[in-house]
Design a protein around this nucleic acid. Structure first.
Lengths: 226, 226
DNA sequence: CGAACGGTTCGGCTTAAGCCGAACTGTCCT
DNA sequence: AGGACAGTTCGGCTTAAGCCGAACCGTTCG
């Protein structure tokens, strides 16, 4: 359930139970514990309870756990589902873009000299600032809290860096606005639209030769026992 | 046990059982599970089994978990033990210096213009490079792997930044070499020696007016039931 | 009003996590 | 050889974690 909330969205208790493949009552118990432990925040609206990750600090913790978990048992090459492939191709990571597409965009920004990445952090060059402005990405912080501006984030499927922070979030937001990528309902996976493929090719000079796994309106993974 | 290993040292199974306040057999079971999960690495020497954190990635994960855990239940103001006070004053954090002293040194480096800290990362200025060289801190990387050079690390007791990365590690190593601080056996706590107090005052212009909690050769916390 | 729906609480079940002491292996030191 | 010691394995115990269905409380809507 925590993994399902990692894209920063709020989800209802029933939806989370559905994803975790457990009963609503069990999910409710876990969710109230997680909320009591301040890992989640619950907001009640009408008759719904919306749960979301409590803070970026918690999100970072979960990400770091997943990163370690991804190293384990490397030889096990269990067959991947279509949904798994879609996740590997493109997904949201808390509030920014990850997976093959996320890494490719990051690589392109670095190659074009718009971003400089070091192990310590990242930096947006002035040409990069101009580039993102032209793209229409809004770099002003939404909240007054000073937040990490630009930072590399190790991608657990690609084992390479993608952009997180304010810059990463701005790019994801803009690509969604442009309709280049769309959220796959009921999943963290993102679908690259045909206009998106053209757009990324034109703006970032990225080509995905037959690598675009997501197809049409694939139903989200739903495997509840009952 | 993982927390006890966070200073990067290797400890024996019996020692870890002692710290965790559990029997050797129970500890052995947990440790072998942790090793199987690649969180720990075990090296057998003679009749001893030395366990240590498997990678900096794991250390970072644990640190991020502790960071989240430190936020929880802020109102609970349970009385602190002497050992707890010592930990808050100065301790090793994986391989660098944390606690009140760690933050103070970081502040001093920033104030003197030797280090520039941003949310994204840190940077050692040329004057800082010269300063550390004069101090005798070895900045060359021990391993061939490229490692984070300089980065702020949120301190869970002080809620402020201290230095981690290659620079942080070099400083801790040098202060130990100089005999300015000593490891408290059986603990992550560090003791500031009188020569260390003088040294920090002279070099970093830091004064600890009666704040030096650690005293003499205080026995480590040992509270096994039996 | 009453059915439908989202969410929670409660009681009860199953299972595994955690723990210990005893026994055993291998090493080290008289 | 024999005792001491570090570590592990095994058997057995206790407890709590995880799960479910049934019942219940509010909200929504026909």
């Amino acid at each position: 359930m925590l993994a399902a909330l990692m894209d920063g969205q709020s989800l209802t208790a029933t939806e989370l139970a559905y994803r975790a493949n457990i009963s609503r009552s069990t999910a409710s118990g876990h969710l109230s514990k997680l909320a009591a432990a301040r890992l989640l925040i619950v907001t009640r609206k009408r008759r719904f309870s919306y749960y979301r990750i409590a803070s970026p600090l918690v999100a970072r913790m979960l990400e770091s756990i997943k990163l370690v978990a991804a190293i384990e048992v490397p030889p096990r090459h269990h067959p991947r589902s279509a949904h798994d492939e879609a996740l590997r191709f493109a997904r949201s990571c808390y509030d920014h873009l990850a997976g093959h597409v996320g890494v490719a965009i990051t690589d392109a920004l670095v190659a074009m000299g718009h971003v400089v990445l070091t192990d310590d952090g990242g930096e947006l060059t002035s040409s990069g600032e101009c580039f993102l402005c032209t793209l229409g990405a809004d770099l002003r912080s939404r909240q007054r809290s000073r937040r990490v501006f630009c930072q590399p984030c190790l991608d657990w499927t690609e084992r390479r860096y993608h952009l997180k922070g304010l810059v990463g979030a701005a790019i994801l937001r803009r690509l969604l606005e442009l309709g280049w990528i769309k959220r796959v309902p009921g999943s963290r996976a993102l679908r690259l639209t045909s206009s998106g493929e053209a757009g990324l090719s034109e703006v970032f000079h990225i080509e995905f030769n037959g690598k675009r796994r997501s197809h049409g309106e694939a139903p989200p993974l739903r495997n509840h026992k009952h």
